[in-house]
């Protein structure tokens, strides 16, 4: 299944990539693949902008505007002016 891909923000600074493969480990959609001693973006249209690769790249080679792909969170953030975060559960303050 593919979603709307024209605005996907994932970019890679190939000269910073050391080919450690960490991005390939954390990506849930096989966006990256090894090519020689480097890793390349092989399927950008599969990226869901979760931000796992950027956060776990120790060399700062990846950049993506991460966020939740959730209409409800975005509508709520438009109304409240806050950041769009997943608020479908666990917001009641109840615990244990």
């Amino acid at each position: 299944m593919r979603y709307i891909t024209s605005g996907i923000t994932l970019t890679m600074l190939t000269d910073k990539c050391t080919g450690c493969g960490m991005c390939m480990e954390v990506c849930p959609h096989e966006v990256f693949k090894a090519e020689g001693k480097r890793v390349v973006i092989a399927a950008k249209d599969r990226c869901m902008e979760c931000g796992a690769c950027e956060l776990n790249c120790a060399f700062g080679a990846l950049n993506v505007s991460k966020g939740v792909g959730c209409a409800s969170a975005l509508i709520k953030s438009m109304i409240t002016g806050g950041e769009p975060t997943c608020g479908c559960s666990g917001t009641s303050g109840n615990c244990c």
């Binding site: 299944m1 605005g7 996907i8 991460k66 792909g69």
Partner: peptide, 24 residues
């Protein structure tokens, strides 16, 4: 149906923003 974007495993925020901009 648009609310289901929050439950899927593949929708990205840039795509949902585009959808909302057109749909709202």
């Amino acid at each position: 149906a648009l609310q289901f974007t929050g439950s899927t495993t593949f929708t990205c925020i840039s795509g949902v923003k585009k959808e909302l901009k057109a749909a709202l």
